[in-house]
């Protein structure tokens, strides 16, 4: 039984990182008033770009470390770039964000898949970034394996929880972003450049989604496929609602979803072969719906102008 729980957690925690990063990024987007349903596409591009650079350059030892790092940076940049493209459509032109998000999703996943087929082709893997064991702490029985022998990006994703929280609460930029998401007119009258702030938030949030994708290809699976992201982008958007825009809540949601997924993997691994695995695979999705039902019952705390374009000279 203990084995089972350990397996369940050691699988579950790394699974949650991609969701956590993407969802935190999406929460920043939404705080500024932009609903980016195309997160999935951004993650795909991040995953492809993140893996492409180490694959093309190769190298070993110290060099590999730098190459991997530049892969991550490139993934973040690719994400930010896609975010800005989306920004032109929804901020500059004020297009409906749900539909435009679907467009971004198709574009991003399609482009990542096409580029992958063209430049890499078959199922090639990369060495990627491996887990590091933190000295001493990883020696703690059970906990050491579970919590202190993870991939550096896993630590990074969990560090981002307080970091995002601080950025949104304590920095002038965070204050501006929140003002733009709640009452852009007020922000504008105080001399804040609403559209610019939204671009910034969108680039930042999308860069995080790009990193989340790179985590999947470079750290988790160490390869790229068309279905690598497999709907994680959409789940990430749902988790923002689940977490009610609070980084800690989002972390809870990401862990809950990933643990549910780990549980179904563990159940499969422990061989209840007669039980159809499809029903296990679908449980996390059912869980998200159930959780969304309860999340919406709570007091509404979301950004009031979420999804509403802002144009100063438009007369309503």
């Amino acid at each position: 039984m203990l084995d089972f729980i350990v397996l369940f957690l050691t699988v579950g925690i790394p699974l949650s990182s991609a969701l956590l990063l993407a969802s935190l990024g999406e929460s920043v987007n939404q705080r500024s008033g932009i609903f980016n349903l195309g997160c999935e596409g951004v993650m795909s591009m991040g995953a492809f770009v993140g893996m492409m650079i180490p694959y093309a350059v190769g190298g070993s030892g110290k060099v590999a470390w730098y190459v991997n790092l530049s892969g991550l940076v490139a993934a973040a940049l690719a994400g930010a770039l896609l975010g800005l493209l989306f920004g032109v459509v929804v901020i500059r032109f004020g297009a409906p964000q749900g539909i435009a998000g679907i467009g971004l999703q198709l574009f991003g996943t399609g482009l990542a898949g096409s580029l992958y087929r063209h430049f890499i082709g078959g199922a090639e893997g990369v060495a990627g970034i491996n887990a590091i064991r933190i000295p001493l702490l990883s020696k703690i029985p059970i906990l050491g394996d579970m919590l202190f022998s993870c991939n550096p990006m896993v630590y990074f994703s969990f560090i981002m929880v307080p970091v995002i929280s601080l950025i949104m609460k304590k920095t002038p930029w965070g204050l501006r972003v929140r003002a733009c998401g709640t009452m852009p007119r007020a922000a504008d009258s105080m001399g804040i450049k609403v559209q610019r702030t939204r671009y910034e938030a969108l680039a930042f949030g999308s860069a995080m989604a790009g990193l989340a994708g790179a985590y999947m290809s470079l750290c988790y699976a160490k390869l790229f496929t068309d279905t690598l992201i497999g709907g994680r982008g959409f789940i990430a958007v749902a988790l923002v609602y689940f977490g009610q825009w609070s980084p800690v809540g989002i972390m809870g949601g990401a862990l809950l979803f990933s643990l549910a997924q780990a549980l179904q993997l563990a159940v499969q691994a422990y061989g209840f072969a007669t039980f159809p695995y499809e029903f296990l695979v679908m449980t996390p999705y059912v869980l998200v719906i159930v959780v969304l039902i309860f999340a919406s019952k709570r007091k509404h705390v979301g950004p009031a102008s979420l999804g509403k374009p802002f144009n100063r000279e438009m007369r309503v």
Binding site: L175, R178, A179, T182, M183, R185, A186, A187, S189, M190, V301, A304
Partner: peptide, 9 residues
């Protein structure tokens, strides 16, 4: 005329 204040700050 409509106050430019962000209500949840």
């Amino acid at each position: 005329q409509q106050y430019m204040l962000v209500p949840d700050l």
